[in-house]
């Protein structure tokens, strides 16, 4: 969640409390079908390669969670220093780089051609930012219950807009929820971002758990994608929409060029 959302969510804390007194049940909803949409996930980092681009299709809501890969597409990544590479398909729907090395400061362009249509996204890799410390904090959730979470502290570079994405693993299991932050009203300060276990998964940090945190420095376009991807869950808004992709051409997905640092901590 991002900071602005924390404030909004906190303000709506009461709804959460009241919904405790409510009931949930699975229901049948008659949903329309949609034609399969192209989904592109592309990443390039400042770590040693290879990097992957995954192409898949969307399915109807009532179908199995089996997303058909797209084979035979032409996938090309180029940078603003004159380098460029066409990624071969290493497994159905997955295209992997061979020699390309991601460098902070460069602007990368991903061109995907499927059925003679080109879809393009541009992302600039920011400079990496280091995590200063990871600490385990406690948050009380009422009625004597407390929950633990990890807090990352890092010094934000002053004078530029910085956007961050956090990916964390608990005991080597990657957590799926989206944690992003930016230096809004915090430029040049030591920012504290809380990294909580996925609410959906009902996971609690126990003594001895190892948490590895990767902090990605991303650009604005990727940040906007993840912000709106989170909101597409539909809980906050009565009229959810598809996330703001940084691709042209009306495809789903994103292309992210990011620099990453990491740290780990064991729960005492």
């Amino acid at each position: 969640m991002e900071r602005r959302q924390i404030i909004q969510q906190a303000a709506l804390f009461m709804t959460g409390a009241l919904i405790l007194s409510s009931c949930e049940k699975v229901i049948d909803v008659d949903l329309n079908d949609s034609s399969p949409q192209i989904v592109i996930e592309g990443n390039i980092t400042d770590q040693t390669g290879p990097y992957t681009v995954r192409l898949s299709k969307s399915v109807n809501f009532d179908e199995l969670n089996d997303f058909p890969p797209i084979s035979g597409a032409t996938v090309q990544i180029s940078d603003d220093a004159g380098n460029s590479e066409i990624l071969p398909e290493t497994s159905p729907g997955t295209y992997t780089t061979v020699a390309l090395q991601g460098t902070p400061g460069r602007t990368y362009t991903l061109d995907v051609t499927i059925d003679e249509q080109i879809y393009t996204a541009v992302s600039t890799m920011p400079l990496p930012v280091a995590i200063d410390t990871l600490t385990i904090e406690e948050q009380s959730i009422g009625f004597g219950d407390k929950t633990s979470y990890v807090e990352a502290r890092y010094k934000d570079p002053e004078g530029i807009d910085n956007y961050y994405r956090f990916v964390h693993l608990i005991n080597n299991v990657r957590q799926k929820d989206i944690i992003i932050d930016k230096d809004w009203l915090q430029d040049g300060n030591t920012i504290r971002t809380s990294i909580e276990p996925d609410e959906e998964e009902d996971i609690e940090l126990k003594q001895g758990d190892e948490v590895i945190v990767f902090m990605q420095s991303i650009d604005e376009g990727v940040y906007e994608y993840y912000r709106t991807l989170d909101e597409a869950g539909g809980e906050f808004s009565a009229s959810p929409t598809n996330p703001l992709s940084n691709f042209s051409g009306g495809v789903l997905g994103y292309f992210s060029a990011y620099a990453v640092t990491s740290k780990s901590i064991v729960v005492p």
Binding site: V29, L31, N32, D33, S34, P36, Q37, V39, E41, S56, K57, S58, V59, N60, F61, N65, F67, R174, K176, L229, A232, G233, G234, A238, S239, P240, T241, N242, P243, L252, G253, Y254
Partner: peptide, 18 residues
Amino acid sequence: VTFPSGKYEIDGKIVNYY
């Protein structure tokens, strides 16, 4: 209301398509 008409996968997570 806006309900999804499809779904897809991003980063291992299922996302609704509107």
